[in-house]
Design a protein around this nucleic acid. Structure first.
Length: 411
RNA sequence: CGGGGCAUGGCCUAGUCCGGUUUAAGGCGCAGCGUUUGGGACGCUGAGAUCCUGGGUUCGAAUCCCAGUGCCCCGACCA
């Protein structure tokens, strides 16, 4: 991609009412654009990042046998009435009717839709378990959208649903999802904390939240500074500074955090309400055991910006960066096109700043966008290429083949 | 939904208190020309504004009054 063709160009100043870090930097650098409160366009750069996040999620969910599909957003009132959530969730669900008086809700989650699918297509225990997921927009009527892209009324989420013949099988898979989520957030580069939480409108059971400690977060969590124990503020009843109840060695600390994922062992509640039964080995009708598991991928992008930036801009890691490498062409550079093409032939995604603008502006914008590897070619570099990582001061002069080797080794 | 703040070319702001030399100003950005080019460079020329909306007061309103809308922040609520 050539910088001259990339839409849109960076802004020199953030919008005046942007206070949170992710709002300021993502808008300035051209990753997102606000349509209204809680409603954002993912611009080409932002869409690249979300796709890279989604790809990591996809790989890990596929690895635990998830099958990807896509469910509708506009859903009939009747299906929500079966579980009573048309009323229970009316504050969070956008509900409306068409000219014929038929009523619809925009899905804020998909348990009912998934359960309808299961009851139509699952007959026997041999059909179970089933693991289905999709990446889709979620609509939630937030009383107060805020914090840039962190809490919006329309956002992208991966939601996975599992159906089982027994509670033991559900809980076994629940544990597998928990481990997959830990791998996902590790691969994305986060220091993620798993906290026990309540289920809200979803379930009466304890659930788990995946939290990124950050001052920009709106949740408060409590966790052990030595082991993986953690609870959110609805659950936590102890005192900060006390010994960890799990390992006894660490002590409990408190932090603000951004919730990026959650998992719910929902049991048979949905199946009983919606009459989703299977026949077991003893020819008995039994309700399907059910779980749901979500990761807000647009929120993940915002969370990363909150924890990884400096006064110059965003600092992406190689996993979720919009491009692998930012090639900055300054006056006197030789063979820019050839270098650009060679990098692409090596399988790398390259943003090539070939614009005829002041050198300083190119360098400043490169820091703002935050691609992890910056290559500068100029009169000074002669036949070599200057290599610099976004999070390091050090620069080195390398040959093209050394650059390619290093990039391929790193990715 | 309660409380607070803000609203002026695409963006950021001055002007608003105390109405009138405002033909609404400046910076950025944008267009043209030229000089530049290792940290948002410079000169000249130029385009670009329902001063959030509606109503009112007045000889005269960006400025005063009334009503409304939008956005941001705190809280409540929530993934």
């Amino acid at each position: 991609m050539k910088s001259s063709e990339l839409f849109p160009h960076a802004l020199k100043e953030p919008p005046k009412d942007a206070e949170s870090i992710n709002h300021q930097l993502l808008v300035r650098a051209g990753f997102i654009d606000q349509l209204m409160a809680g409603s954002w366009t993912l611009l080409p750069l932002g869409w690249r990042v979300v796709n890279r996040i989604n790809q990591v999620i996809r790989e890990e969910i596929n690895a635990i046998n998830g099958q990807e599909m896509l469910m509708p957003l506009m859903t009939p009132r009747s299906i929500w009435q079966e579980t009573g959530r048309w009323q229970k969730a009316e504050e969070v669900m956008y509900q409306f009717s068409d000219d014929g008086g038929r009523e619809y809700g925009l899905a804020f989650t998909h348990e009912e839709i998934l359960m309808d699918l299961l009851r139509k297509r699952v007959n026997t225990y041999a059909d179970l378990p089933i693991y289905l997921y999709h990446f889709s927009t979620k609509f939630r009527n937030e009383a107060r959208a805020r914090s840039g892209i962190l809490r919006s009324r329309e956002f992208m989420m991966k939601d996975l649903y599992s159906a089982h013949a027994s509670e033991a099988d559900l809980m076994d898979y629940y544990q597998k999802v928990k481990e997959a989520y830990i791998r996902i957030f590790q691969r994305l580069g986060f220091n993620c904390r798993v906290t026990e939480a309540l289920g809200g409108v979803f379930t009466e059971n304890y659930t788990h939240e995946f939290q990124i400690p950050s001052e920009g977060g709106e949740d408060v969590i409590f966790y052990c500074d030595q082991c993986d124990w953690g609870q959110n503020k609805e659950v936590f009843k102890g005192q900060v500074g006390q010994p960890c109840p799990k390992c006894q060695k660490g002590k409990i600390i408190q932090s603000r955090a951004i919730e990026v994922g959650n998992i719910f062992p929902l049991g048979t509640w949905f199946a009983e309400k919606m009459k989703a039964f299977f026949t077991d080995q003893n020819n008995q009708k039994r309700p399907i055991w059910f779980g749901s598991y979500g990761i807000g991928s647009t929120r993940v992008m915002g969370a990363w910006v909150e924890i990884s930036h400096d006064d110059k801009g965003i600092i992406w890691n190689k996993t979720m960066a919009p491009f692998d490498v930012h090639l900055i062409e300054l006056p006197g550079a030789k063979n820019a096109l050839e270098i650009y093409q060679k990098l692409q032939e090596a399988g790398l995604e390259v943003l090539w700043d070939e614009r005829d603008i002041n050198a300083g502006q190119k360098l400043v914008e490169a820091d703002l966008i935050g691609i992890p590897v910056r290559l500068v070619i100029s009169e000074k570099t002669k036949d070599q290429i200057e290599w610099r990582l976004r999070n390091k001061e050090k620069t080195e002069l390398l040959s093209l083949s050394e650059v390619v080797n290093r990039l391929q080794k790193e990715s």
